[in-house]
Nucleic acid binder design. Structure first.
Lengths: 200, 200
DNA sequence: GTCTATATACGGATAGAC
DNA sequence: GTCTATCCGTATATAGAC
């Protein structure tokens, strides 16, 4: 593994654990076992390191997040909740201190420059697209005209809001409640009389 | 207005606009027109100022947020969406740079001490309780046994996730989509299984 | 309770040898 | 491309006069 990759991986971990602003270059160097010259040779400024971290999340989302979550799960609706369950596992593994790395950065960086903001958007879009494809694959179960992208957006807000509350409460309960309620909506949609449902 | 109150108000504004970590004591002093001695006399450490800010949000939520949102709105379900619409107005007023002050702090502070975490929880709880009361007031419209607290939690995650996405996208669209989809769920619940709807 | 001056540490970033 | 030494600004917090 190259020094550059090691730096990006270490930075990603520290940004996720402690935040971008709260992570010092010195700590990244220490944890990566690298030295100042190497870091600033590869990344002229801290912001460039953040760009690399966000590109890594976007490019690795399939292999690192989605595929493991969907291994052995074939039903598209089950896949939606398998991905949400992956986040639940992150919460369990961290005793409810987990935060979505993208969501945390999206709220921490109050005035990101356009490159950073575009990468945050790209990450959200990959996630949403994947879920939208699941709903679309199960479109036969939903009333005609159902907006699957809208369902995917609500899935994302449910996850992000659920993780936020679970971490704050140091409890799985708000996450489980939000996801269970979202699931109730999906189930209700699937059983609703197609003629009675109005969709945008 | 006391110097202390002026400091808390200024700090609240700056923490919301730029984040807790990104706000320097010097900037608070400059914007509040106060001096170092006054600040550290009232608040021995920056954390104490944050405590005061979070207490102010919790204590002022009714007067500053809920009541203005509900002025002239009597139907309890309309009130749920009137509160969500208040956040939409914040997004409009700030050209989609608004962030929920509580949600932003909840994600920025990765290792808050217990006092801070409890205050974040308290703020979320006040918000959720208010919405739960709305749903409960309209309980006749919902199937028997509907979990109104769960609906309130989903309302909160919809708002927090919606604000996060709207700010990242610099567009109202994700917020509007999330809220409209949540509303579709509520409407679906109210019309679902008419035989089970509690009458009287 | 208000004010100025200062302590001390650490932030990101740079210079230049090798 | 790697490494050490260092610059300079700013951070929180403190000391002590008034």
């Amino acid at each position: 593994m190259s020094t550059r990759d090691k730096l990006v991986e270490t930075a990603a971990r520290l940004f996720a654990d402690n935040g971008f602003g709260a992570t010092g270059m010195s700590e990244i160097l220490r944890r990566a076992g690298a030295h100042r010259g190497s870091l600033y040779h590869a990344f002229p400024a801290k912001k460039d390191l953040l760009v690399a971290v966000l590109e890594r999340y976007r490019n690795g989302m399939d292999v690192r997040l989605i595929e493991p979550a969907w291994r052995g799960v074939v039903d598209p609706i089950d896949r939606v909740f398998a991905l949400l369950d992956r986040y639940r596992a992150f919460l369990v593994d961290t005793e409810c201190t987990f935060g979505c790395p993208i969501g945390s950065l999206a709220l921490e960086l109050h005035s990101p420059d356009e490159e950073i903001r575009a990468l945050l958007v790209a990450n959200f879009n990959v996630w949403t697209r994947k879920i939208e494809e699941c709903f679309n694959a199960a479109r036969g179960q939903f009333p005609a005209g159902t907006d699957f992208r809208a369902l995917a957006v609500l899935a994302l807000t449910t996850m992000e809001g659920g993780v936020m509350l679970a971490r704050t409460h140091r409890s799985l309960e708000p996450f489980d409640t939000a996801v269970a309620t979202f699931r109730d909506y999906i189930d209700l949609l699937r059983t609703a009389d197609p003629g009675a449902v109005k969709v945008g």
